[in-house]
Write a protein that binds this DNA or RNA. Structure first.
Length: 478
RNA sequence: CGGGGUGUAGCGCAGCUGGUAGCGCGCUUGGUUCGGGACCAAGAGGCCGGGAGUUCAAGUCUCCCCACUCCGACCA
C-alpha cells in the first residue's frame, strides 16, 4: 500500500543526499537553528544521544587515568599568540570579545577555538617536578570557530566536544598516549557507534596547526564521502617551550614536558546519521540510542492491552533497557513511522492477538526483521535483538567501507575511480606536497591519512612516478 | 569568500499582468476509529524575513540588507 506523502516525509538519500541529511537532523528533532548564523541548538533528543556518547567515552578516559577539568572560555590575545603555528591556524576563525560592559578592553579576548594555550599557561604555573607527571586532563565543553559555511553537526560555529590535554616526562610516553587515545577513539567508533574506521597519520598539509604529528580515524559515509572521526595529536615539547612549561627532572635539571591533545566532537552524531540512516530516517546504534526499545500497544483501547504493554515496559526497565511506551491516540502507522524517523533500534508490538498467544512481536529498525517471542522470554530476546542491530549496523557499514576502497596506480586512475565509484582511493605516495596538491586539483580528493596498517601497492608514487615512501588514502571529505 | 536556490500560520506550499491573504498537514475541543502514516464536526493561529523606495494602493514592482540551503574554496 502506497504511503501518502506527509509532512514528516524526508527526501530520499538517492535523490539528494545533502537534503536527506538536513531533513533527518530536523525531522528527527536532533537540532534546530539558533538566531545567530551558524549556531545550533541541540534539542533534547539530539542532546540525549550526545550524553550517551559522553558517558561511555568519559568512562573510557577515566579507565586510563584521565581526569576532567574546566578551563575558561576566553583567551587573551597575547597568550594565544605565543605559539606561531597555532595562531596562524586558528586566528582567522576566532571570535573576539572587545568590550566588558561599556568599557573597551585593553586587550581583546578570543573565544576558545581550542584550549592548548590555556592548558599550557596553567601548567606553566602549577608544574614543578617530574613526580607530578604525567598530567592527564580532559574537558567537555564547546568551542567557537567562525566557519564560513555551516551544516548541523558537521560544521557549525559553535560545537560541543571533549578535548584531552596531557603532558609527560618523556617523548615516548607522550607518543604512547597519542596512540592510546587514537585507539580509544577507533574502538569507540567501531564498538559503540558501529562505524568501522581507518586509523592513520595525517600528512604535513593536513595535520593540526602546531602539532608534530596528527593521527586520525577516518570513516566512510553512505554517500562514500570521507569524514574525519576524531584526532589525536603529538606535540613533542614545542608548546612547552613556547609557553614556558617546565619541571625539574630526575637529574635535577629543568626540562620541558612532552605533550598531546586529542578531541572528538558532536560531529560524531553526523557520522552516525550518514553511516547508518536510511530513507525512513535515523538509525541509531543501540548503545547510544536514547530510546532503545519503543513499545507500541496495538488496539490499546481493548481491555488489558495497556496493562500488558505497561508490564512489558516495566520488565524491560528493570532489566536496564532504555524503554518507552507510546500509548498516545495516534494510529499504529503513524507511531511506526515516527519511531523509525527517530531511529529507535527496536520496536515491541503487543495486541489482543499476541496476548492470547502469550507473545509479542519485536521489529528491528535496521533491517525491518520481525521476531515473535514468548512473553516470558522478553528480556533475553530484547537483549539479543539489540545486539543483532548493533552488529548488523557495523557489518553493513564495514561492507560499504570495504567495497568502496580501491587501489590506484596513477593519478588518472585515481581520478577515474573517484568519479565513477567514489569512496577511498589508496595509492603509493612520494610524500611531496606537490603531489598532494595535484591530487586535490585534478582529482578533487584530499589525503585522508597514511594508514597505520600499511600495504605495499608498488614502488613508485602514483602522481609523479618517483620512489614512494608510503601508502596513502585519498577521498572527498566532509 | 565566490556561484546557484529559497524566505507567506508550527510544517509543506499556493497566491497570474499590484486592490489589503488562502490550501493541506499539524495544533485545540468533542465524537467515531485503531495489527503500517484514520475520519467527521467545530475552533485557534499571519507586522507575507528586515529596511528603504515607486504607487491612491505592495506578499506581488525596484534597490539594499539578513537568514537558511546546495555546489566550490577553507576548516572538527
Amino acid at each position: 500500500m502506497a504511503k501518502e506523502k506527509k509532512v514528516e516525509q524526508i527526501t530520499d538519500m538517492e535523490v539528494d543526499f545533502a537534503q536527506w541529511y538536513t531533513d533527518i537532523c530536523r525531522k528527527a528533532e536532533l537540532v534546530e537553528y539558533a538566531s545567530v548564523k551558524g549556531f545550533t541548538i541541540l534539542r533534547p533528543y539530539g542532546y540525549a544521544i550526545w550524553e550517551n556518547m559522553q558517558q561511555l567515552m568519559d568512562a573510557e578516559f577515566k579507565k586510563t587515568g584521565h581526569v576532567n577539568v574546566a578551563m575558561p572560555v576566553l583567551i587573551p590575545e597575547s597568550l594565544l599568540k605565543k605559539e606561531g603555528e597555532l595562531v596562524n591556524g586558528f586566528a582567522p576563525e576566532c571570535a573576539w570579545v572587545t568590550m566588558g560592559g561599556n568599557e573597551e578592553l585593553e586587550e581583546r579576548l578570543a573565544f576558545r577555538p581550542t584550549s592548548e594555550t590555556m592548558f599550557c599557561d596553567h601548567w606553566s604555573r602549577v608544574l614543578h617536578s617530574y613526580r607530578e607527571l604525567p598530567m592527564l586532563y580532559n574537558q567537555w565543553c564547546s568551542v567557537i570557530r567562525w566557519e564560513k559555511t555551516t551544516r548541523p553537526f558537521l560544521r557549525s560555529r559553535e560545537f560541543w566536544w571533549q578535548e584531552g590535554h596531557t603532558i609527560h616526562e618523556t617523548a615516548e610516553e607522550a607518543q604512547a598516549e597519542t596512540e592510546q587515545q587514537l585507539n580509544c577513539y577507533a574502538d569507540f567508533y567501531e564498538n559503540v557507534l558501529a562505524i568501522p574506521v581507518v586509523r592513520g597519520r595525517k600528512t604535513e598539509k593536513e595535520k593540526f596547526a602546531g602539532a608534530e604529528a596528527t593521527y586520525t580515524v577516518e570513516c566512510m559515509m553512505k554517500d562514500r564521502k570521507a569524514l574525519q572521526g576524531a584526532t589525536s595529536h603529538y606535540f613533542g615539547d614545542k608548546f612547552s617551550r613556547a609557553y614556558g612549561v617546565t619541571f625539574t627532572g630526575r637529574d635535577n635539571k629543568l626540562q620541558y614536558p612532552f605533550q598531546t591533545s586529542w578531541g572528538s566532537t558532536t560531529r560524531m552524531i553526523g557520522a552516525v546519521i550518514m553511516a547508518h540512516g536510511d530513507n525512513n530516517g535515523l538509525v541509531l546504534p543501540p548503545k547510544i540510542a536514547p530510546i532503545q526499545v519503543i513499545i507500541l500497544p496495538v488496539a490499546q483501547h481493548k481491555p488489558g492491552v495497556l496493562e500488558a504493554a505497561s508490564a512489558l515496559r516495566d520488565r524491560l526497565k528493570a532489566a536496564g533497557v532504555r524503554v518507552q511506551m507510546d500509548d498516545s491516540d495516534n494510529s499504529m502507522g503513524w507511531k511506526c513511522a515516527q519511531y523509525e524517523m527517530k531511529g529507535v533500534p527496536l520496536r515491541v508490538e503487543i495486541g489482543p492477538r499476541d496476548m492470547e498467544a502469550g507473545q509479542c512481536v519485536l521489529v528491528r529498525r535496521n533491517d525491518g526483521e520481525k521476531t515473535v517471542v514468548a512473553l516470558d522470554a522478553l528480556e533475553a530476546a530484547v537483549t539479543e535483538q539489540l545486539e543483532l542491530v548493533q552488529k548488523g549496523l557495523y557489518e553493513k557499514a564495514k561492507k560499504n567501507l570495504d567495497e568502496h576502497t580501491y587501489a590506484a596506480y596513477s593519478l588518472e586512475e585515481a581520478k577515474e575511480l573517484q568519479e565513477q565509484k567514489g569512496g577511498f582511493i589508496k595509492t603509493m605516495w612520494c610524500g611531496e606536497l606537490e603531489c598532494e596538491l595535484k591530487m586535490k586539483e585534478q582529482a578533487g580528493m584530499s589525503s585522508r591519512c597514511m594508514p597505520l596498517q600499511q600495504e605495499k601497492l608498488g614502488e613508485v608514487c602514483a602522481c609523479c612516478g618517483k620512489p614512494a615512501k608510503t601508502m596513502i588514502y585519498w577521498g572527498v571529505a566532509y
